[in-house]
């Protein structure tokens, strides 16, 4: 297959020339998935923490709900969000369909349960008496939570990395609610699918390669943060 060789060559050429169309798609990918990952973390980490440290009625149900969310097929999420955002759907008046915001919503719904579940694991893997010990040292509930999060930093950063990875890899849902509109909602994943469908394999490979590079860079930054925490200085 000569495609791979040609594809790689084309990809490198586009990257080096900083082709504006390609850059635009890459930047949009970073914006949409970065924002979705951020929101997922803001929602998911406190949720995972609360599930790990608090006992309250309905906790079991909420844990199951999060686990279901993790296993939910993303394409179903895309369908659900579409149904909500269609003109004649319940949220149709907000006119969010076929905008980047719709994609952010879908990606959050897909990534947040993963972040919550992994955060839960990270906190739960600490000694189970640690919350008690922190309270015994005079911490308020809030202070104890902050300390637990700090102590579970390694696991929590893994949760963030997983959340971002999930958000940025999403294709089906992003396509369904975004419409893959040129310059507006076309991101690296949907652009790759588009070019494959057209038979432009070289361009598809270059998008794929750029996506890999992008994900690698973000994960590398987060990993540096994670490992910095390991040295125990703060």
């Amino acid at each position: 297959m000569t495609y791979i060789g040609q594809g790689l060559g084309e990809a490198v050429r586009l990257l080096l020339q900083l082709d504006p169309a390609v850059l635009k798609v890459a930047w949009l990918t970073l914006q949409v998935s970065g924002l979705a990952a951020l929101i997922s973390v803001v929602l998911g980490v406190p949720l995972g923490c609360a599930l790990a440290t608090r006992r309250f009625r309905g906790r079991g149900a909420l844990v199951s709900f999060v686990n279901v969310g993790m296993g939910m097929p993303p394409v179903v999420v895309g369908l659900l969000v579409s149904l909500l955002l269609w003109r004649y759907g319940p949220l149709g008046d907000w006119q969010l369909l076929y905008t980047p915001w719709a994609m952010v919503i879908a990606q959050v719904l897909i990534a947040a349960p993963i972040v919550a579940s992994l955060s839960f694991s990270a906190i739960v893997s600490l000694d189970e008496r640690l919350p008690l010990q922190l309270l015994a040292l005079g911490a308020s509930r809030l202070q104890a939570d902050r300390l637990l999060i700090k102590e579970a930093k390694l696991g929590l950063l893994a949760a963030v990395i997983a959340g971002f990875g999930r958000a940025v890899s999403e294709v089906g849902a992003s396509m369904m609610v975004g419409g893959n509109l040129k310059d507006e909602t076309r991101v690296l994943t949907t652009a790759t699918v588009l070019e494959v469908g057209k038979g432009n394999y070289e361009l598809a490979i270059s998008f794929g390669l750029i996506l890999l590079v992008l994900v690698y860079l973000v994960v590398a930054v987060l990993t540096v943060l994670q490992q910095a925490g390991k040295r125990g200085c703060s």
Binding site: L38, W101, E184
Partner: peptide, 24 residues
């Protein structure tokens, strides 16, 4: 040093949010 990285990350995300908002 770590705080600067966090601040940088937060800035990128904020910028992203603002840019998306201005997308219309």
């Amino acid at each position: 040093m770590k705080q600067k990285l966090w601040a940088g990350l937060a800035a990128i995300c904020l910028a992203g949010a603002l840019l998306l908002a201005g997308c219309g």
